[in-house]
């Protein structure tokens, strides 16, 4: 079954829509779901043109397609366990929160908290991801615990904060403090990063671009050749300000003159 949701024109297009009901399993019972637009509860059909093609007997056979102005729609795919969601353009915050299975594919950019506290399944974002990609909720001790997040563009600050399990793969650059408080899992950054893995307790982070301002509490222990990439990386253990059991591999370590160029930092997260 294929459910196509195309946004309708809205009187107040800046209002956020909270749409955790948009998960494949909910459409087995029909498309008459509700979402919140600001502080008003609306029928899905008030905000979207809905087209349903075919039928399905189980949620894993349901594909939801989102079209139109979707950048302010939050929580799509929250608690999703199976099935597929394809978003043609940008998507709002909290896409794939707590998801445990299924696939989310985002054609454009994803706003903050993409795949927050994800447990399983996979998210592919073809654009950029905002701050806190694959991280945890405020005050939570564990971030993403399983599954896979792949971002073809850049990610913002605090990417993979509290990463505990699963794999996060960023093909572009990361903002400030990627992998901060990491406890497990694997973070791969193909581009540049600034101050990665602060307070890291465990897990592994590999960075193949330039690392700006590597923290002074990471201890260089070895160099290693990665045969599948045919590159040599410098291996650090850290963060020794904490237990220091994490592994950080860097292909291009920073140089001395690059220690604190504050003007190279990306725009900070606002909180």
């Amino acid at each position: 079954m294929r459910v196509i949701l195309e946004t309708k024109e809205r009187k107040k297009p800046f209002l956020p829509i909270e749409a955790e009901t948009i998960i494949p399993s909910n459409f087995l019972k029909g498309p008459e779901l509700t979402v919140y637009e600001g502080n008003k509860e609306r029928l899905l059909s008030d905000l979207f043109t809905i087209v349903v093609e075919g039928t399905a007997v189980s949620p894993d056979k349901v594909e939801v397609v989102l079209k139109g102005d979707t950048a302010r729609i939050k929580r799509v795919g929250e608690y999703m366990a199976t099935g597929t969601i394809r978003i043609q353009g940008d998507i709002g915050m909290h896409c794939g929160n707590f998801m445990s299975g299924g696939v989310i594919e985002i054609g454009g950019n994803a706003d903050a908290w993409l795949g927050r506290e994800m447990l399983g399944g996979s998210i592919i974002c073809h654009g950029n991801a905002g701050h806190y990609c694959a991280s945890g909720y405020r005050g939570e001790k564990h971030g993403m615990r399983g599954g896979r997040v792949e971002v073809m563009g850049n990610a913002g600050d605090f990417c993979s904060e509290y990463l505990t399990g699963g794999e996060v793969h960023i093909h572009g650059n990361c903002g400030d403090m990627a992998g901060v408080e990491m406890k497990g899992g694997q973070l791969i950054i193909e581009g540049d990063a600034t101050r990665p893995c602060g307070n890291m307790k465990d897990g592994m982070c590999m960075i193949f671009g330039t690392v700006h301002r590597i923290l002074p509490t990471f201890e260089k222990i070895d160099t290693k050749k990665l045969p599948d990439r045919n590159v040599t990386v410098t291996v650090y253990k850290g963060d020794v300000a904490n237990r220091g059991k994490g592994t950080l591999m860097i292909q291009k370590p920073h140089n001395e003159g690059d220690q604190h160029p504050a003007n190279t930092l990306p725009g900070p997260a606002t909180t």
Binding site: P216, A241, A262
Partner: peptide, 20 residues
């Protein structure tokens, strides 16, 4: 401290206090 370097200095102090 150089602008924006607080985190690094705090981490360094923690490492010193931990004997590292």
């Amino acid at each position: 401290i150089e602008r924006g370097g607080d985190y690094e200095v705090l981490s360094a102090l923690r490492a010193i206090v931990r004997g590292k």
